[in-house]
């Protein structure tokens, strides 16, 4: 059974606020999706609908061809992990894991054990006594070891320190290779996670701004580096995302398809063309959309 996700014209309205507006996309089995958006863009609202935490106001969601809401068969195959408040969770780590084992059909106890050792999680400690970082580690261990066909991490790694996050990213890639599934990773940490994504979805003000292959997306922009005056001359009239200068050398990010014509033009001026980062692109795209909104 493949757990493809199909979302059509999805909208979610709270009392006086439209959290999601007419969102449509398809996600395929075996890919890692990055869900980006600024605060309040609607990321968690979207994910909570996919995980049946709430119902949409309009539009449809289909997972494995059926509506997931209150569908026992589908729900047990969707894992949704977010920054959970464990202040009152007095259960021990090992009991939490055995609960997950009991309810998740694809749970791999051996793998969970390996992850517990990797993240140095104390099995006999009460969950509320763990540090925030450790609680995050527990959250991602539950998510990874469940091996659910659809696994969603909504910023659940924010409290982990940088080395632990890298461990998590490595594990995620490794396990995806052996047990492919749909991962949806929502994040603010664009610059350190971009290499994980097969495809990227950007939400802005409740609308789906874009859904594209990672490679295609970053080929939409480039960095031009070289002598400051030459660079300034070259980028005149183009959409500039950001610029940096060190002495006489300047580097400018522009938003434009990388074509042979541009490459030749830059070449003739002795300028170097480099890739743009997803982070820069994300900041630029959501900023311009913001200014459109306010007009």
């Amino acid at each position: 059974m493949t757990y493809n996700i199909e979302v059509n014209n999805l909208s979610l309205k709270y009392k006086n606020f439209e959290a999601l507006k007419d969102v449509s996309f398809k996600l395929e089995d075996g890919k890692i999706y990055g869900l980006l958006g600024r605060n309040g863009a609607g990321k968690t609202s979207l994910l909570s609908i996919l995980a049946s935490y709430r119902q949409q106001t309009a539009g449809s969601v289909k997972i494995a061809g059926a509506a997931p809401y209150e569908n026992a068969e589908i729900n047990q195959n969707i894992s949704f992990h977010f920054q959970t408040n464990y202040e009152e969770e007095t259960e021990k780590v090992k009991n939490m894991l055995s609960m997950v084992e009991e309810y998740r059909p694809n749970y791999d106890a051996e793998y969970a054990k390996y992850l517990v050792e990797l993240f140095k999680l104390p099995m006999n400690k009460n969950v509320n006594k763990l540090s925030k970082g450790m609680q995050s580690a527990l959250e991602v261990i539950m998510g990874l070891a469940s091996r659910s066909p659809i696994t969603i991490f909504d910023e659940s790694y924010l409290s982990m320190d940088a080395p632990t996050r890298v461990k998590f990213y490595n594990e995620l890639l490794k396990d995806q290779e052996n047990h492919p599934r749909i991962f949806i990773l929502s994040t603010h940490l664009v610059s350190e996670m971009d290499y994980l994504f097969d495809e990227v979805l950007i939400l802005d003000n409740g609308k789906l701004l874009l859904h594209e292959d990672y490679e295609t997306l970053i080929s939409r922009g480039m960095s031009i580096t070289g002598n400051a005056t030459d660079v300034d001359e070259f980028v005149k009239g183009r959409r500039i995302l950001s610029s940096q200068q060190l002495g006489k050398t300047k580097s400018v990010m522009i938003y434009e398809e990388r074509t042979e014509k541009i490459e030749n033009a830059a070449d003739s001026l002795g300028l170097e063309i480099g890739p743009i980062s997803l982070q820069d692109l994300f900041i630029h795209l959501t900023e311009t959309e913001d200014s459109h909104e306010s007009k």
């Binding site: 049946s52 935490y53 209150e70 569908n71 026992a72 729900n75 047990q76 195959n77 969707i78 894992s79 949704f80 959970t84 609960m99 997950v100 309810y103 998740r104 659910s148």
Partner: peptide, 10 residues
């Protein structure tokens, strides 16, 4: 229980 993938009904 919802977090463990159980439906509201169950």
């Amino acid at each position: 229980l919802i977090k463990l993938g159980i439906t509201r009904k169950t």
